[in-house]
Structures are given as C-alpha cells and as structure tokens.
Nucleic acid binder design. Structure first.
Length: 679
RNA sequence: GGCGAGGUAGCUCAGAUGGUUAGAGCGCAUGAUUCAUAAUCAUGAGGUCGAGAGUUCAAUUCUCUCUCUCGCUACCA
C-alpha cells in the first residue's frame, strides 16, 4: 500500500430527526472508532470527523407535527446523539452539524464552484405549488389517493399502505399537507449534477482502480454503474436548508438538496476543527476513509466522489468499508416501529456497560452480511467471554500478586522454555491484530485480542503458581511477573475495542498507557512497582435482566400489531347511481400465465359472458397461474382499458386485501353463469 | 424479472490461483484443576461446505441451472 502521511476518517452523519440506536453503532461508529483509536495508538496523524445531518424534508415534517421549528428538532437530536456517542466512547475529533455557519458557507461555495465551472444542467419541471402557503411542495407534503391501492393518505413519494413508491403527480386528488388546499402544477427551475457524464470515469476509478473495496461495496457500485446513471437534482424548493447563492438566477426559495450538502459536512467539520484542513482534504498522501452503512454506499462511492471530482481540488476516498445491517431479535430495526435499542435507554438499563455493548457489536458486526443481535447472545458473550476469559484472567493475575507479593511487581528469575514460548506469543498476536485492523476485519481483530487473555489464562493454568508457592516460591515471582506483563500489554491491546476496560486495568496496575509498539514487551512493569487495588472488570448479566429487555421488545411488538392493523375507515357515502356505474360481472379464468420479467403480474384470459378478454392482475405472489384456471372471479368490466407491460388490460379482477397486503379472490361461493352481474 | 451480496458444525462466522484428515469462537461431552465472578486448562463429538448438472485425474472452491435470505430496480386498475 501507498505510504500515507495522515488519515482522514469520517463516519456517516446521523440524520438529526431521531436518536441513534444500536444498529448505527454496530455498523458505523464502533468500527470507525476502533480503527481510529488504533491509528492514534500507533501515533498516526489522524482526524476523526462526524456531525449531525440537519437538513431535508423529514425534519421539517417532524417539526410541523410537533408544532416546533426545524431548528428545535435538530437541536434536540444533535444534543442527544452527541451525548450518546460521547457516552459510548466514540472519540470524534469533532462532532459538528450541518446547520453551522461554516458548513453553510462551505456548501454554498462548493455549489458555486461547480456552477461556475458549468458542471450543472439546468432543467425546468412541473411541481406542485401551494397557492395559499405560497410555496412549492415537497413530495412528502402532498397527500392524496394512492393510484395503486386507492387508499387515501398516500404521500407524494410513497404510499405507506401498499408500500409503493410514487411520483407526486401520480396521486389522485392531491392535497397540500400544509394548507389542505388543492395544489397546482407550476414550473420550477432546478440544477442537476449530470452523473451520466462521470460514468466512464467512475467505471475506471471504481471498477478498475478500487478492486480492493469490500465485495458488498464493489458489487453494489458495479450494479449502479451498469444500470446507467442519471442526472440528479441538487436543489429543492424548500425553506429549510442551505440557500442556493443569491447571485445565481432563479435561486429564490431554493435550497441545496440534502444529499448534496450532507457529505460536504465532512469538509466543513474539518475546516471548523483545524486551519490545516486543506492538508487533510487536498494532499495525495492523505488516506481518506468513509465508514458508513450499506444504505449510504451509492452516496459515498458514486455521488460524493463525482462531486469531488467535478470540483477538482479534493482527494478521493481510498476505501469505504461499508457494513451491512444489524437486525434485532430477528426483525429489521425500525425507528418508526420503535423496533430498536436506543443508546440512551441502554445506558439507563446497563449503566457503565458501554464496553460490553461495544464488544458484542464488534464481535458480531455485520461485516459481510446482515447479522442478528439478540439479548441472549449479548448475555452469553458478556458472561462467557468478557467475564470468564478477560475479566477473570486480569483478576487472577492481580489477586495472586496481592496475596503472594503484597501487590508489588515481583522481579523475574531465570526464564524456562514455557515462559519464553508464552512471551513469544505476544508479538505474534499483536501482528495478527494489526493485519486484521488494516484490512477492516474488526471482528477477527477482536477475536485475536481475546487470544491475549487466553494466553494469560493458559499460562497460569500450566504454571500453577498457587501450588509452587508452597514448594518453589522464587519461581512464583517469575510467573507473576510474566502474568502481570501480559496484563499490562493486554490493556494496550484491547484499548481500541474496550477503552473503559483498558483504563480500568491501567488504574489497577497503576500505570500510564503503553504504546502499541511496546505492547508485547516484558519490561513495561518494573520490579517493585506498586499496583493499585484489584477490582472486577465485568459483572455477570443475570437472566432476569435479559428477560426484561426481551419483554420490553415484546411489548413494542404487541403495540405495533395493535397499531398496524387498523381497519380502514369507511369512505364517504355515494349514491346508488355512483355504484351502478360500475359493471361488475362474474367470469371464468380460461387461461393464466405469468407476465415475463415481472414479479407480481399474471396475464389472465377471462370468459366474461360478454366476451373473452385479457386482464393483467398483480396476483402472482399469491396464486400460481396453472392452479386458478377454471376458477370463477368477479371482474369490473367497464374500467378504462390500460396498457400494462405492453399488454392491454381490459378490466380489473376484484380482490380482497388484508392489512399485510395479502390478496385473495372475491368471487361467488356457488357456481354461477358467466356474465352474471354483481349488485 | 434484472442486477448486487449472502447461503460452510446447534449458534455466530473464517477459508481456499481446485489437490492429502474443511477451520475458529461460543454451546455440548469427558478429563484435569481450584489462584479466580462454579471462572480456567486439555481432549473430544459434531459438517454429503443451499440443491442438481457439467468441466477435471480431482470441486465446498470453476461453469451452468435451480432454490432460499437481504438490498437496489421494473411492473402491480
């Protein structure tokens, strides 16, 4: 690898509309912090950058819902999250925020530079405008009837009832969520970053020059690039965000799209931290690494690099070790469903146990695939690994010294072969950890770190000083000296993974931090050195504590089920006339085949009694085509025909849909004649 | 449907430009031990490496088909 002079490490800016949970910690912040602490231990020049991402529509929506300002929202979560990170020992050099002045300036300048270089495309498009509120409406601010499932209350970007992603212009009866008025379509000007223009360069840079990226990252990028990149709007009509610079024509009422300003936040935060920021962002001998979750791959691997490339004066990331997701007790973590373990709640239930969570999350980090966090596993790792192996070894070494040497480091005598062999293991383990960490294999590194404690336990078990004390007491001095040297080195070895624990060990040994380079030596503790008071590093976690957590989640689940299965309220009354406009008939399915290249569509031929016609229906997930032939169904025959996937669909099959979106035929119970009217 | 990632011991994961008995941790069993939070140490059991076919002297590792999980994407009156 290239000889880098300094490191710039960023971790994804958490979005300031909610608290951080253990998934964030496991995927992004714990790995980043471990890596950074390790680099610092080795004396490398490193900056660790993070901050709150505070713009964008969801924040304005949350503010409206609660009747407060967007600034109030971001202030709340910025403070909360900043504290949570600090509590878990995540040692950012700066935890900034994108509502800062420095960031506003930096991001506007960045935009201006690209604008002046002619890197943007200007495009006018039609967007909904609320004439009462006098503003353009973000997709989320438009509600209406879902064109797919016909439920009301769908948003302009997505229908939460059926999960379909939508365009605002597809909504039936759109309404402004701001004023309730009917919005009108108006022209609006926006700037686009032509990602397609960077396609050849991205191909070369990622697919050829960055083959060392993790396979999940590399593959995802390849997938995006191969699919073809589209120009992406960098501005929005919104009043919360960074205004497009005034001198630019048409900038009125427009802000930078949050995806554009957020990654620039890494730069602004660095600027805020040090006047030397350009050394980190603009020298080839800086190694820039982004720690992110898999949801952020496209932004950090494709879009942000394209922005930096377009700007021209910045370096590009050398690696982006994105992690996958952490599930919780078998289900996807979800903020909106409250299916999460919030960091501040964890600390209330397990005070002082941040290292335990760091350990469990690192040991089970979703490095290659989604992983599952269970409280049972949490308990097992605490009790069987931290308590039994690590805590126990340190305790044994210290208590033995206390009993036999009055808490003073004894002078070693001559070393025998087993002593030498044990001592020789330390540099080996240290090397293994280095190699794992340099390659972002943190769970492997942690496993090696635990080997250090195992080495100590084995050494004690094999030398049996508690027996020798009666027969060859001078030999015990050597054994305890070596055991204590292992303990001292162990404190440095686990420092990056378990910082609090490392500090506790140092305190018990009454020593200062040992550098990484010295973390294998046998003279870090001098003979005669007075040790501090021994104490237990970890406590056992009882079944009752785990049951409490599991019950807590179970309650969430129950609450969600009650919440998630509401029966749709009755629609407004209609006249009989309205009803009788619908011509619903009974028909028989004559033929059915899956529409090629679709997941849900089945092409049906129906004998309606009137004629034999083709209908395309989205039922493939629930019915196998060959099994429904001959079945009678109800069909709305006078629905406007529509082309679906190139097939003319003449009518619509009536289906009953439950709260989970599962479909079943609504059809006559008894066999009846084709063409029978349904009234 | 397309694309990407993953499917290896009860659990969580490593692994190999194809080559003798496929690895680790936890769990389990047996033995040793008692300084230590009944912790530790040793030994062992346990896998047709998602399924099938092909290439090969030889495949878990390469190719193809299929299947399951996750993600992106298209379609869903």
């Amino acid at each position: 690898m290239k000889d880098y002079k300094r490191y710039l490490i960023t971790s994804a800016l958490p979005y300031a509309n909610g608290p951080v949970h253990l998934g964030h910690l496991a995927g992004v912040y714990v790995p980043a912090d471990i890596y950074v602490r390790y680099l610092r231990q080795r004396g490398r020049d490193v900056l660790f950058i993070c901050g709150s991402d505070e713009h964008g529509v969801p924040i304005t929506i949350k503010a409206r819902k609660e009747g407060i300002t967007p600034q109030d929202v971001v202030d709340r979560y910025h403070t909360l999250n900043k504290k949570a990170f600090a509590d878990f020992g995540i040692t950012f050099d700066i935890y900034s925020r994108t509502s800062n002045k420095v960031h506003h300036q930096t991001a506007s300048e960045f935009f201006e530079t690209l604008y002046d270089k002619g890197e943007f495309i200007e495009k006018t498009s039609k967007q909904y405008y609320d004439t009462e509120a006098k503003q353009f409406l973000a997709d989320r601010y438009i509600t209406g009837t879902c064109p797919k499932c016909h439920k009301e209350g769908a948003y302009g970007d997505q229908c939460e009832a059926c999960g379909t992603s939508l365009n605002a212009t597809d909504l039936i009866n759109p309404k402004s969520a701001l004023s309730g008025s009917v919005p009108e379509l108006r022209d609006t000007l926006h700037w686009f970053l032509p990602l397609d223009k960077y396609e050849p360069w991205l191909k070369q840079w990622i697919l050829e020059e960055n083959k060392h990226w993790k396979s999940n990252v590399y593959g995802q990028c390849k997938s995006w690039i191969d699919a073809g990149l589209q120009p992406r709007a960098v501005s929005r009509d919104l009043d919360w965000g960074i205004p497009i610079p005034k001198r630019i024509k048409g900038s009125d009422g427009k802000v930078l799209y949050v995806w554009f300003d957020a990654p620039i936040g890494y730069i602004s935060a660095t600027k805020e931290l040090t006047p030397d920021w350009e050394k980190y962002w603009k020298s080839d001998d800086t190694r820039l690494i982004h720690f992110i979750g898999k949801d952020n791959i496209v932004f950090h691997c494709i879009i942000f690099p394209a922005m930096l490339k377009a700007e021209g004066s910045y370096i590009l990331p050398e690696n982006i070790p994105a992690n996958e997701f952490l599930n919780l007790e078998g289900d996807k973590i979800s903020t909106s469903r409250n299916w999460a373990v919030w960091l501040h709640e964890y600390l209330e239930d397990f005070p002082g146990k941040q290292d335990v969570l760091r350990y469990v999350l690192c040991a089970n980090a979703p490095e290659a695939k989604d992983n599952d966090f269970t409280w049972k596993d949490f308990q097992a790792r605490n009790n069987n690994e931290l308590v039994a192996i690590l805590g126990n070894f340190v305790n044994r070494a210290l208590v033995l010294t206390q009993k036999n040497c009055n808490g003073k480091v004894p002078a070693p005598g001559a070393l025998n072969d087993f002593d030498k062999q044990t001592i020789a293991e330390m540099p080996k383990i240290k090397d293994q950890i280095e190699s794992s960490l340099e390659n972002f294999r943190l769970r492997e590194a942690l496993k090696f770190a635990m080997d250090f404690a195992r080495l100590g336990n084995k050494y004690l078990a094999d030398t049996e000083p508690w027996k020798l004390i009666k027969t060859v007491p001078e030999r015990v001095n050597t054994i305890l000296n070596i055991s204590l040297q292992i303990t001292a080195n162990l404190s440095a070895i686990i420092e990056s993974f378990l910082p609090d624990t490392a500090a506790k060990i140092r305190k018990m040994l009454n020593i200062d931090a040992i550098t990484w380079e010295n973390a294998y030596k046998t003279d870090n503790l001098k003979a005669g050195h007075q040790l501090g008071e021994p104490a237990l590093l970890f406590d056992k976690i009882e079944d009752s504590q785990i049951e409490f957590q599991v019950e807590k989640l179970q309650k969430t689940k129950t609450a969600n089920q009650a919440l998630c299965a509401p029966v749709e309220p009755q629609k407004p009354n209609i006249s009989f006339d309205d009803f009788s406009k619908m011509d619903i008939r009974v028909g028989t399915i004559l033929a059915a085949e899956k529409v090629a290249k679709t997941q849900k569509l089945v092409k049906l031929t129906i004998d309606t009694g009137i004629d034999k016609r083709t209908v395309v229906s989205g039922i493939a997930e629930y019915y196998e085509p060959e099994k429904i032939i001959g079945q009678q169904v109800c069909i709305l025959v006078n629905l406007e025909p529509r082309k679906i996937k190139g097939i003319d669909s003449q009518g619509m099959i009536l289906m009953a849909e439950d709260a989970n979106g599962k479909l079943c035929f609504a059809a006559p119970i008894d066999k009846t004649g084709n063409g029978s009217g349904v009234k």
